[in-house]
Design a protein around this nucleic acid. Structure first.
Lengths: 140, 140
DNA sequence: TATAATTAAATTGTATACAATCTAATTTCT
DNA sequence: AGAAATTAGATTGTATACAATTTAATTATA
């Protein structure tokens, strides 16, 4: 089956391309907050959780310490988060959101809607896409 | 609308995570071919086209010369491709597949099926996902 | 309880990504 | 034709990603 290897028959490729292209759409909005996309999804978790250790954060975001350690140091430099050793278990590094980090949430609140609207998907398509993607993530 | 910024309500995040996790599934198979995922999708285009310039390749794959230039040099080192200046327009660099590159295609032919099967999607879901992703790509 | 095994982050090394800039070749325009 | 604008790749600088290894802390076990 030769067609197996045609780019147009690959499912991962449009996922990969969509992901990158949508992230590009975030850029102008995230630039105003001085955040990259990866830093933004870290902030999203912190807007929900207030504090979390690196391991749990990585599990939520499918990222490991090799990616998170330098990224979290940058967020700390920007004063959006604090990094503190846990006193209960010194192996754990607790990431805490700062007031400055909390304030970003207000500025960020319209971003999902703004980016979402350029996708031009119907309500049904949005729901279906969402459902299938989480099905894949749960299966992997 | 506070919920706007919950991770579970973001559409881009599961796309980003799925893309990365599926690419991870390719790794053991691609390791045997001494290819990374990005190098693999370049080879997929070349298995179809035989030759193409960097600009067109970038358009197909949503990648720019900053990513492609070093990647193509690596594929040349592995003798899977050749890089030749076009004689018609010296600004163009033509990427040609080599015999060694062609031979890889045989070894790669089962990879899409093998990776596809770990997604556990129904036929309908696969088609629907494919359709929505290309709709997004065409809209962007 | 001393040692082995495990765990969480950090580090190292390689490979993307991409914006911005640069350089050289080609077109366009006057 | 010659200058200006455009185009294709390459380069530079910053920021991920992630496998593999290392380090330090904790837990399990002989």
């Amino acid at each position: 089956m030769e067609d197996n290897l045609k780019l147009s028959n690959q499912l991962c490729f449009p996922l990969y391309a969509c992901s990158k292209e949508i992230i590009r759409k975030y850029k102008p909005y995230l630039d105003k907050l001085n955040l990259t996309y990866t830093q933004y999804i870290v902030m999203i978790v912190l807007w929900e959780e207030k504090e979390i250790n690196v391991k749990s954060l990585g599990k939520r975001l499918f990222l490991d310490s090799g990616t998170l350690t330098p990224l979290l140091k940058k967020l700390e430099e920007k004063k959006y988060i604090e990094r503190v050793k846990s006193t209960f278990d010194e192996r754990n590094l607790i990431i805490k959101i700062t007031n400055k980090g909390e304030e970003l949430k207000v500025k960020a609140k319209d971003i999902p809607t703004l980016v979402g609207s350029c996708l031009n998907l119907s309500k049904d398509e949005t729901i279906e896409l969402y459902k299938i993607l989480y099905k894949i993530l749960n299966n992997l």
